[in-house]
């Protein structure tokens, strides 16, 4: 880090829905290989921002580039460079693990051999080789979540967007999930993650905290804690939210 190679740059990003301002002048940069936490309460505008960065929504105004491409005009190019794991579960429950990998690999234009290799590698990493022909619906939530993540990075994207990836899983699985995130980041994949678990914020390289559509703070967890004289990120967040309220 610190080589100042930015994979996401947003300058004065604004998104309005009618008169409602969901994203109010967001400005931030994300470095290559960084784990960037995007925090905020429900309804603070996190999902809107992530959808804009993924090319699912057009911004109202602002200068935004993702993987060096303009989000207004080059969404097709952006889509090839990113992976996405949504809040809701993104695997097909009536298909087997193998079939899910084959499908997602296929839509990213990967070759059969490459898909096979990647599938084997990912399943080996999760230690669930033996389950490859099981229907996804029969697997425990924790495994499914880790699989969703594996599928999102199987085409080796530059950036992976995770929208509340650990909702509803137990703390141990969350720990294991974050280990996967670290491994991905170590391979140079930039991780852009939204969450409302403040303990997870501690795992990020840098976090931005959104309140009512605006970024109220953006720094490393350590600096934020120092600045707000807080013991942990939870306190930082509460202090910020109270100030805004």
């Amino acid at each position: 880090m610190g080589n100042n190679e930015y994979v996401i740059e947003a300058e004065n990003l604004v998104k309005k829905f009618g008169s409602f301002v969901a994203n109010d002048n967001l400005t931030f940069k994300v470095e290559k290989g960084e784990i960037f936490g995007f925090l905020g309460a429900n309804g603070a505008g996190k999902t809107t921002a992530i959808r804009i960065l993924c090319g699912l929504l057009l911004p109202t105004s602002g200068k935004i580039t993702v993987a060096g491409q303009n989000v207004y005009t080059q969404t097709e190019a952006i889509k090839k460079q990113i992976g996405y794991m949504s809040q809701r579960f993104s695997l097909y429950e009536d298909l087997t693990i193998n079939e899910n990998f084959r499908f997602y690999g296929g839509i990213y234009g990967m070759s059969r051999i490459k898909i096979k290799e990647k599938t084997a590698e990912m399943l080996d990493r999760l230690g669930i080789e033996s389950l490859k022909n099981s229907i996804v619906a029969s697997l425990p939530l924790g495994i499914r979540q880790k699989l969703s993540f594996s599928v999102a990075i199987m085409h080796s994207p530059q950036i992976v967007f995770l929208d509340e990836p650990t909702g509803g899983v137990d703390p141990i699985t969350r720990r294991q999930f974050w280990e996967l995130i670290y491994e991905a980041a170590a391979k140079g994949i930039t991780v852009f993650v939204t969450t409302h678990y403040m303990d997870e914020a501690e795992y990020c390289n840098r976090v931005s905290i959104m309140v009512d559509g605006r970024i109220e703070a953006l720094d490393t967890p350590r600096n934020l804690k120092d600045k707000f004289q807080a013991k942990n990120m939870d306190e930082v967040f509460l202090k910020l939210a109270r100030k805004a309220g």
Partner: peptide
């Protein structure tokens, strides 16, 4: 409903 549509829309598929 299941949210997979979003994943498809984010993919390079038109």
């Amino acid at each position: 409903e299941l949210g997979t549509m979003e994943v498809l829309l984010v993919s390079p598929l038109k």
